[in-house]
Design a protein around this nucleic acid. Structure first.
Lengths: 205, 205
DNA sequence: GAAAGAATCGACCGCCTGGTCGGTTGGTTG
DNA sequence: CAACCAACCGACCAGGCGGTCGATTCTTTC
């Protein structure tokens, strides 16, 4: 409190800042080459330091992997909760969550791929931790669907399966989404949302 | 013609049979550990041979990877075409394709994961080949949607985006589908199909 | 039974990886 | 100035990897 200068313009917190730089560099490389095909050497170079220095900030390669996972799921949970507090309607909450996910394909490409493809490579303990948060997030979306059903605004008999379908539409986008594409994340979410809510068949037969 | 014994009960074609055993073993390991974390040594043991013998059947590790990719996409294309010949209705063709994909999660788990997660690791030339087939398959589903629109049976203004959403729902299942689960692939496809076609909102307001 | 080729493998190689060690620098405290 | 500690790194290591080599066995063909 007395000694540390509280966030001067360039160095918000020193070491933490440096850790973030490492994770950001690593995520970028993971996105391009995959976790297994990215070496600590590459990460070190990308973060502009020597390899041993990396081990001053992270105890092992999988500690970086864990950090990426946690950042990703924490963002989603935080955003979902924020929207819930603002207590918007059902459609907003649903399409909002879809927008959150799709937006991360723009802002956190590496995080996304890592979270979806490399969670099995986390050490057992940390894998449990991440899985717990992921399940928590899943439960929140299932909750939205159940709410909608209880209010008669949605018709569905298997909330979890439906939620998995919705997640699928959005999460899968990491396989094809491009920043240069014609559609922005929010537009895609809107389209997908209307498919899920209104369906493709003409209304009124 | 004269010499080769045509498929006696145990050895359909000798060397080809052995190749298939290798690919099947490899796919099983890829499913469990991922491509990069599976060594040629492990594959050899699983296929009950020594490592150098593997190189009698495949020129390199990525040749096995390619074989897995090709088998997967060839199955899907063949099944889609088969259904098209039987010229069933729109819903059958759509839900049918979805069933095809979900069924592979049961019968070809390793192929699925490899196809979705490791296509970037194929040598450039083979990657192009697989991508071409994948695009072909995608185009076939887009075609179904466009047909439906032309006949007034579907309402949509972005066939490709919609197709990507549908693929997402199904493909993503490789992340959560379990053989021990309560629902069979065909049932899941039916549910997802009705979400996409009818939507979740009550009809007629 | 000789020749040929398919199928097999023990031993080996160069390379790269995650991670360690021991030591240096440089700013902050008393 | 002395002590301290965070930050940093050149050099090194054991281990595992994909892949090769040379030689051996088995099977088929004439």
């Amino acid at each position: 409190m007395t000694t540390t200068p509280e966030s001067p313009p360039s160095t918000p917190s020193g070491a933490d800042q440096r850790r973030n730089e490492i994770v950001a560099s690593a995520a970028r490389l993971f996105d391009e080459f995959g976790y297994g095909n990215t070496s600590m050497q590459q990460i070190a170079i990308a973060a502009q330091m020597a390899k041993p220095t990396l081990y001053h900030y992270f105890s092992a390669k999988d500690a970086i992997l864990f950090q990426v996972h946690e950042e990703f799921i924490d963002i989603l949970i935080r955003q979902f909760r924020g929207r819930a507090l603002r207590s918007t309607g059902l459609r907003d909450r649903l399409v909002g969550a879809m927008t959150d996910i799709l937006t991360l394909m723009d802002t956190h490409r590496g995080h996304v791929r890592v979270f979806f493809e490399h969670h099995r490579e986390l050490p057992a303990e940390q894998q449990r931790l991440i899985r717990a948060k992921r399940d928590e997030y899943e439960a929140m979306l299932v909750g939205v669907l159940e709410d909608g059903r209880a209010r008669g605004e949605l018709i569905l008999d298997q909330p979890r399966l439906t939620a998995l379908g919705i997640f699928g539409m959005c999460n899968w986008a990491y396989q094809w989404y491009s920043r240069d594409g014609a559609l922005a994340p929010a537009e895609i979410a809107e389209r997908f949302g209307s498919v899920v809510l209104d369906g493709l068949s003409p209304r009124g037969d």
